[in-house]
């Protein structure tokens, strides 16, 4: 194993260790925090694929996060009320089975990512940043003013969805589900990056002209990456909905997009476990600084500034001794 792989494995092990220690010490809230970090990390893993490896700065990933959340929330609330989700073109019932909700959330997020990506990828640079933001804002305002599922108030479904053989309401068991999914996503991400597809994606970023010359069509490659990225972030959204038993338009807001981006950059752009390190550190800071002062967000801001100015490789970059990717 090389040094980068050891760091990745170490970070994942640290997350699991935190949850296990908290379980042994009888601190269920720490497990909840670890779960939250794992879910945000998963959302970041999705973004990192396009941002870190593809060089595409999407400022609208909250769209996929929120859509995943709303798919979970809508299906669960229909399962609770018994009313079908749709009767046309075919009758579709709600469900509270995570195993049914996840593919659905990923499919819907993927379809939306396909539409947004197909339009946004015609632009580049700052314009890409802003057009992805615009699409997310459209969905945000739609969710606020669409009354059927609570609008601005959001949608509560009170009981966590079920997973065969597990009690999802038990913090540690829910954490286990999230951690396994995060592990799978990290593994998938590693595979993608090393595959021919991943090489092409990185080539299209580093030297677009040369990539075209060797027969790579950047648009298709980037669009595929964008869709996969949206699906992973959508899955994270569905899990976040389950963590809170609640979804609201806040999951679609530009603040959320910004936060997901902060996880990735804080941890280290284009590094496998970057989002995990970033999300973990962010939640730890939020929790610790919140106890220091009412104005803790100012301290958080200063800390982020220091990191971005003096540690451009993020946390993983620091751990790696500033060595290349």
């Amino acid at each position: 194993m090389n040094r980068a792989a050891i760091i990745d494995a170490g970070l994942f092990a640290a997350l699991v260790a935190v949850a296990l220690v908290a379980q042994a010490a009888g601190e269920p809230f720490v497990i909840t925090l670890a779960t939250k970090a794992a879910i945000f990390a998963l959302a970041g893993v999705g973004l990192n694929l396009v941002l870190g490896y593809g060089g595409l700065v999407s400022f609208g990933h909250a769209a996929f996060f929120g859509i995943g959340g709303y798919v979970a929330g809508i299906l669960a609330s229909h399962a609770m009320s018994g009313a079908p989700v749709a009767t046309f073109p075919f009758t579709m019932q709600g469900t509270n089975e995570m195993l049914a909700i996840w593919p659905m959330a990923m499919a819907v997020a993927g379809l939306v990512a396909l539409a947004i990506g197909a339009l946004s990828l015609r632009t580049s640079g700052v314009y890409f940043i802003m057009v992805t933001l615009a699409f997310a804002q459209m969905l945000y305002y739609f969710a606020i003013s669409w009354p059927a599922y609570g609008g601005e108030d959001g949608l509560s479904f009170y009981v966590r969805n079920t997973f065969p053989g597990l009690n999802t309401f038990d913090p540690i068991q829910f954490f286990a589900i999230v951690a396994v999914l995060l592990g799978l996503a990290l593994g998938l991400s590693a595979l993608i990056v090393r595959s021919r597809f991943g090489l092409a994606l990185r080539a299209a970023r580093a030297a677009p002209g040369r990539a075209v010359a060797v027969g790579i069509r950047p648009f298709g490659i980037r669009l595929t990456a964008f869709v996969i990225s949206g699906m992973i972030t959508g899955l994270a959204g569905a899990l976040y909905a389950d963590l809170n038993r609640f979804v609201s338009p806040a999951m679609l807001s530009w603040h959320m997009s910004g936060e997901i981006m902060v996880f990735v950059i804080l941890g280290g752009v284009g590094r496998l476990a970057g989002p995990l390190a970033g999300a973990g550190a962010y939640i730890l800071l939020e929790h610790l600084l919140g106890g220091v002062s009412e104005y803790w967000q100012a301290l958080l801001g200063l800390l982020l500034l220091v990191i971005v100015l003096f540690a451009p490789g993020g946390i993983v970059g620091m751990l790696n001794g500033g060595r290349g990717r």
């Binding site: 700065v57 400022f59 940043i129 104005y295 982020l304 971005v308």
Partner: peptide
């Protein structure tokens, strides 16, 4: 790159608002 600029100026918003 634009990424670092976004993060640093996002951090500045937090500092300015709370101050």
């Amino acid at each position: 790159d634009h990424l670092d600029q976004v993060l640093a100026t996002f951090a500045l918003i937090l500092v300015f608002s709370e101050t």
